[in-house]
């Protein structure tokens, strides 16, 4: 029997090409890179005279808000006017719905872990050497972003998920050699910076490929 989808006008690859054009703008890369950079901002506390937990909370909120704003405003005012508007079919919508459910569960899980850690209830899980940061990285970063990459059908995100997951481990090793703040600056700054630069390259290519339309 002839598979029409594969034999004549490969509609699946057309749909995939159309869908993936939304990742050409590099905003996802910039978003992920900036989130990673945010993990390594704790060292900036030396500039301000604020107690550590409060400072980290404030800087995390400010940095994450800036990251989300860049993503949201960039998509709204730069990407969409250039690339145009499209509504995808039911399969994509179902995937996005599953992704939202997963993210919600992930946030809830994160909140529970944060509360348990805050009250010192997870100390019994501490492993020897650098295994704890490795485990934290893989569970809190690699696993969720791999799932997000799958649902978004966004291949670069698999690499970023791996890179991000290992930064905690690498940062811990750098700490034992070079101490603080170089552990954060190198451990999170280098991979985060690389991802942001990749995003910016995609962004520049995107601006060249999709100039602002003069007419609709």
């Amino acid at each position: 029997m002839v598979d029409i989808d594969k034999e004549v006008l490969d509609l699946k690859s057309i749909e995939k090409k159309v869908y993936r054009s939304f990742f050409e703008d590099g905003f996802w890369d910039i978003f992920i890179g900036m989130l990673l950079l945010g993990f390594g901002l704790g060292w900036t506390r030396i500039i301000f005279d604020i107690m550590e937990p409060l400072y980290i909370l404030i800087i995390s909120i400010i940095w994450t808000t800036i990251t989300f704003l860049i993503y949201y405003l960039g998509k709204k005012f730069i990407t969409l006017p250039r690339i145009g508007t499209v509504k995808f079919g039911q399969k994509r919508k179902a995937r996005q719905k599953k992704l939202k459910i997963f993210l919600l569960i992930n946030v809830l899980f994160g909140c529970i872990v944060f509360i348990l850690t805050f009250f010192g209830l997870l100390e019994f899980l501490a492993l020897a050497g650098s295994l704890t940061p490795l485990l934290i990285g893989l569970i809190s970063y690699t696993f969720p972003f791999t799932i997000v990459a799958y649902f978004l059908d966004f291949n670069r995100l698999y690499i970023y998920a791996l890179m991000g997951g290992f930064t905690f481990f690498i940062s811990d090793i750098i700490y034992s050699i070079l101490g603080s703040p170089l552990d954060s600056i190198i451990g999170f700054g280098v991979p985060g910076g690389i991802i942001v630069v990749v995003g910016l390259i995609f962004f520049i290519k995107f601006l060249r490929k999709y100039p602002k339309p003069k007419k609709d």
Binding site: L9, L11, I14, R82, I83, G84, K87, Y210, P213
Partner: peptide, 24 residues
């Protein structure tokens, strides 16, 4: 037609980019 077949709806800007046709 193929581009419109694989999505629910799209605007002219999107179709122009995908098909690489001129506006006219």
């Amino acid at each position: 037609m193929a581009y419109l077949y694989v999505v629910e709806s799209a605007d002219m800007v999107f179709l122009k980019n995908q098909t690489e046709l001129t506006w006219g």
